[in-house]
Design a protein around this nucleic acid. Sequence first.
DNA 1: TTGAATCATCGTAATATTGCAATGAACAAA
DNA 2: TTTGTTCATTGCAATATTACGATGATTCAA
Lengths: 110, 110
Amino acid sequence: MGVAKTEIFTDQQNEIALFAKALGHPARVSILEHLFRIDSCVCGDLVNEIGLAQATISQHLKELKNLGLIQGSVEGTSVCYCINKENWTKMKSLLSTFLDQDIQNTSSCC
Amino acid sequence: MGVAKTEIFTDQQNEIALFAKALGHPARVSILEHLFRIDSCVCGDLVNEIGLAQATISQHLKELKNLGLIQGSVEGTSVCYCINKENWTKMKSLLSTFLDQDIQNTSSCC
DNA sequence: TTGAATCATCGTAATATTGCAATGAACAAA
DNA sequence: TTTGTTCATTGCAATATTACGATGATTCAA
């Protein structure tokens, strides 16, 4: 009932799902793209760049931060967010493995 | 609310999010893994393999089907599902491009 | 100290998702 | 035709997600 039954799946399946879920909203996709694009660690501009309320952006940032995909450091009155490359790489290899699993299997049936 | 504001994002961002969302539940990850593993197009066994009710599995299959990631064909009393390789490949390249965007940018700040 | 700026959190509303029992539809075998 | 099998759909309940205004907390500048 609204709760995913994580206990019947493998750790890897749950982890893939968690990362994928984080990418499952265009605002978070956009945030991550911005953080990659802006070389310097600009932050609060995300609210201006993306057309969502400050509270909403902050909420999405929190999710990405909880997952470890980004990290933030306070700089005066503003907070500097950027990609956590280590965890990004981890996610990338996890998802890539999943996405590449068709290479071995070329037969099709329907 | 609870509705994602898709209109303020690019088509690509929305598409990435849609595909990622489909992978954002361990049951669907598991279903896709099974469909890749079983070479022959076995189907209803998904209910036995995964520990969820038949109605629930059917619902997840419907989602994956609507997105075009899998397809099904009726075979007597059972339905044969398998990966839609064309769309899978499309998703893979879309997500891979997104996941690989860090290659160009090596600087870090926080 | 006061005020402005920036960001997080809280509270709330609207909607989406997850899960299942019950039921329906289609088909094959008896 | 009847019965059993397989899968889809419906109808619900529980929970999660998305979004935003209002309000705090923190920091810098005056």
